[in-house]
Write a protein that binds this DNA or RNA. Structure first.
Length: 298
DNA sequence: CTCCAGGCGCCTT
DNA sequence: AAGGCGCATGGA
């Protein structure tokens, strides 16, 4: 098979990128994605139905897969290795809270996630701690995902179940994954995507308000979860998810510790942070959760 | 034990 | 528009 031979010559299970300002721990651990597990010196996860191990070394990001690939664009896109973080940070307003957040979290990147996994995960996120979201997502994948090839000695890995797969499950099968009242929401969303009533791929081509409106037609998807999908999966850099942490951060840092109203928060977020408001949001979110205990309580 | 978690939907003011 | 409440489940 000569054709296959010439094609497979470039196939490899390892690749590396030269990167500046790429903090793998912050990026994979900040709560934007839920399937990454930190090992001694590397992170293991699943991207586009493929087992992946990542390791950062000085200015090099090392990737390893279980099966060979000639085309690695799926992972480069997910990791956003080609985005210019310095240019993004330069669009932030020059104020004290963001200076502190960038000083503490520089290298945190927004990933470009798969829309269905992102939507499903954030449907499961409401009033759950990040550790619990990870557990629920992991259970769903173990029970209903497809087993994936992994390297020798590695733990089993599973794909994130497709909309069709989840749409065929019963509500009680989902509730058994500890997702509680979110089970019917996930089931309905899976049905909408599986039957083509919601086209997730087309959202990125729409104006942000219309894309958000379509997501919010789903039961259990309000403005916050919609913004997460728009920002983390659809590439809308101005989407600005406001959860309890961001609400606290904005109130304390920009409203002189006064509890700002939802309207005030919306208008401030839309006017203050610029074209990469969503990036700024993630820096504030991660900063307040990791370094913010003292800054917040004082 | 209590409090709260990357919310939402519905109700009342 | 804003505030209150119930919703499942389990960390802290």
């Amino acid at each position: 098979m000569p054709a296959a031979t010439s094609a497979s010559r470039r196939d490899t299970t390892r690749l590396r990128w030269r990167v500046e300002d790429y903090d793998l721990d912050a990026t994979l651990g900040c709560g934007q994605a839920f399937r990454w597990r930190r090992g001694a010196a590397s992170w293991t996860g699943v991207v586009s139905g493929r087992w992946v191990r990542l390791r950062k070394e000085k200015h090099t990001l090392h990737a390893e897969t279980a099966t060979p690939h000639a085309d690695w664009r799926w992972l480069a896109e997910y990791l956003q290795v080609d985005s210019d973080l310095a240019a993004i940070l330069n669009t932030f307003p020059d104020d004290a809270p963001l200076r502190a957040a960038v000083a503490a979290c520089r290298g945190l990147r927004l990933l470009r996630q798969e829309p269905w996994e992102c939507l499903a995960s954030f449907i499961l996120s409401s009033t759950k701690q990040i550790t619990q979201i990870r557990q629920i997502v992991e259970l769903v994948c173990q029970r209903f995902g497809e087993p994936l090839p992994v390297p020798p000695v590695s733990a089993p890995a599973f794909s994130f179940p497709s909309p069709d797969r989840i749409a065929r499950l019963s509500e009680s099968e989902l509730r058994a994954c500890k997702m509680g009242f979110r089970a019917p929401h996930l089931l309905a969303a899976a049905g909408a995507v599986a039957e083509g009533r919601l086209d997730l791929q087309s959202l990125q081509t729409l104006p942000l308000p219309e894309a958000k409106e379509r997501l919010m037609k789903l039961e259990g998807v309000g403005p916050k979860i919609a913004d997460c999908v728009l920002l983390f999966a659809c590439g809308f850099g101005q989407a600005f998810p406001v959860d309890v942490w961001v609400e606290r951060a904005l109130s304390k840092l920009y409203f002189r510790r006064r509890k700002a109203t939802p309207r005030e928060l919306r208008e401030f977020a839309a006017s203050h942070f610029g074209p990469n408001a969503g990036y700024a949001q993630q820096y504030l979110f991660h900063f307040i959760r990791t370094h913010g205990a003292q800054k917040l309580s004082g």
